[in-house]
Design a protein around this nucleic acid. Structure first.
Lengths: 194, 194
DNA sequence: TAAAACTTAGTGAGTGCTCACTCAGCAGAG
DNA sequence: CTCTGCTGAGTGAGCACTCACTAAGTTTTA
């Protein structure tokens, strides 16, 4: 209970991710997690006390990965921001679509579920900080207009989260529109000292 | 089954809405819907065959209401767009917060649930059209720059949907930031023929 | 050095509870 | 007598979680 080996942690996080991508949160059962796990269903309970704890473990694992991926982006503020958006605004045929929809499901359950709230808050806060940091750098270096970094970051991140909804979940044909939308927004952030 | 009286329709839609606001979709049961309904649980099944159909009825009801509310806004394109955003981007202490989170939950279940997909698509498409119409009018009348109306509308709507997530669901303290975000975005849409 | 005692990492077969949905029947209107 | 609208009392399936047990190490003891 106290300490779980990193291997077991990662194996279970992956099993939760695969099961979530396949079935979605609503239909996620411990039996389905076990189907993607080398050991048995009861074995999951050797490491975690509840299903929610397994999901929280998946979220923490994912937050770590996303943080690494976003931190690996380099270039000037404009390039960094475009690359980061490209990463977060995904297309319906993206292979990670299932995972993103699942995280959105989890988000929507946060008001009723304490166990999930904390890791989700961590995930979103970290991403927000990262975006705000890029914008702040852009403003300081004069690449961007004098906008409020937190406001721009929060707005972009909200749009990224929301696009998962009606774009991926509903398969509405607005992928190109949304991409022009955020791209145009970044254009509008650029300082116009031509 | 075939035709349900408008009264019964509305009563059940309201019961679903109240139960959703109170318990969220995950913990929504037909018994809880019945608690907010004047008749019995079994009575719900006199009108609808499945729980999902009751929820779909609620969504259709809500889509109608939202359409009316947004259509009632008047003023110039800038005022209309600001008022519409004010309506969709809500604060955590908004009394409708529960309903918005619930719709977000429903959205995230759409990939796995055919019954819900259609009414949700209708809800989102109608709102998107409405926003795009306002922006188009603004562009045509020269109030806004020559932006792509569908792109701007889709981007704004995505941001509105997403803000429900980390703002209302997580109670992250970014309400003011997001408002400055969309307000600044509308500023950037204005034609600058000062 | 070998047997005994203990620990770690699991497993298969439940168990009890919740919940969507059903059904036989009933009151009142026409 | 029949149709509409409705109900109380189930019922069966699904699911989170438990538990008695085991096989494979590791440590202790004589």
């Amino acid at each position: 209970m106290a300490d779980i080996s990193p291997d077991a942690r990662a194996e279970i996080a992956d099993a939760v991710r695969d099961a979530l991508a396949e079935h979605g949160y609503e239909r996620l059962t411990t039996a389905k997690i076990a189907e993607h796990y080398a050991k048995s269903e009861a074995g999951l309970y050797y490491y975690y006390d509840t299903k929610d704890e397994m999901i929280a473990a998946f979220l923490e694992h994912t937050a770590g990965q996303l943080g690494e991926e976003l931190a690996a982006i380099d270039g000037g503020p404009e390039q960094q921001l475009r690359a980061a958006c490209d990463h977060l605004f995904l297309s319906p045929d993206d292979e990670d679509a299932g995972v993103h929809v699942a995280i959105m499901e989890l988000l929507s359950h946060a008001p009723h579920n304490e166990t999930l709230r904390e890791p989700l808050l961590g995930l979103e806060s970290a991403t927000l900080e990262l975006f705000a940091g890029i914008v702040r750098q852009g403003v300081d270096s004069g690449v961007f207009r004098d906008v409020d970094p937190r406001a721009s970051a929060a707005f972009l991140l909200a749009a990224a989260d929301g696009s998962t909804g009606f774009h991926v979940a509903l398969e509405m044909d607005v992928g190109a529109d949304i991409e022009r939308g955020w791209s145009g927004y970044i254009d509008s952030l650029l300082a116009d000292d031509a």
